[in-house]
Amino acid sequence: MRRRIYWLMPDLASARQAMHDLVQARVDVARIHFAGPEGMDMTGLHAANVWQTSDVVHAAKTGWVIGSACGMVAGLVAGLLFPVMGDDPEWEVAVLLGVLGGVVGAWSASMIGISIPSIRLRRFEGAMAEGRILLMVDLPRSRVQDIEALLQTAHPEAHFEGEEQQVPAFR
């Protein structure tokens, strides 16, 4: 697991310099994400993608749970009331429909979640609307203090906005 640190940069020049400083400090470019106002030219920065800016992961998890539950209920009803072979309940139908319901639920919920802004970034919307740029860096626990110190020293114009305790590896 990694930790995500958040910094608000005042402008593009500061954000580009921070990107350069982080790369020089051997932070993997894939772990550096910038989010800014809609339509801002993010040339020279590793822009955040839908994994960082939308609610797609949370929505997919929720869809999986709800879809699986609905599929299991439908499968239990079908397996108990409408057995295909013989008179015994067919429990396999419940399992099959549970998995199928989970897949369909995750897929459909993620299609909705991709268009919903991340709840984690909601507190930064005002600052980004004013033209500031959000820097998100995903780091191993052992590097958090060093990188925070680097950014604080090299970028006094930037503001530390907090840390998220656990970021899954695939984000």
Rank of each mutant, 00 (worst) to 15 (best):
M1Y: 07
R3Q: 14
R3W: 01
I5Q: 04
Y6A: 12
W7H: 14
A15L: 04
A15I: 10
M19T: 11
H20T: 14
D21Y: 10
V23H: 08
A25L: 09
R26S: 11
V29Y: 02
V29E: 14
A30W: 04
I32V: 14
F34A: 01
G36D: 05
G39L: 07
G44I: 10
H46L: 09
A47Q: 13
Q52R: 09
T53I: 02
T53D: 02
V57K: 04
H58T: 07
H58K: 09
T62A: 14
G63Y: 07
V65I: 15
I66N: 05
S68I: 05
S68R: 00
G75L: 11
V77L: 15
L80V: 08
L81T: 01
M85S: 12
M85N: 13
M85G: 03
D87T: 13
P89D: 00
W91C: 03
W91S: 01
E92L: 13
E92K: 00
V93F: 12
V95E: 02
V95A: 15
L96G: 10
G98C: 15
G102S: 09
G102C: 09
V103W: 13
V104F: 15
V104H: 06
V104L: 15
W107S: 08
S108Q: 09
A109C: 08
M111F: 10
M111G: 04
I114W: 06
S115N: 13
I116E: 01
S118N: 12
S118Y: 07
S118W: 06
I119Y: 09
R122Q: 12
E125K: 10
M128Y: 08
R132H: 06
V137K: 01
R141H: 15
V144G: 08
D146M: 10
I147E: 06
L150G: 05
A154F: 00
H155G: 12
H155V: 13
E161A: 15
Q165G: 02
Q166F: 14
P168T: 11
P168I: 04
F170C: 04
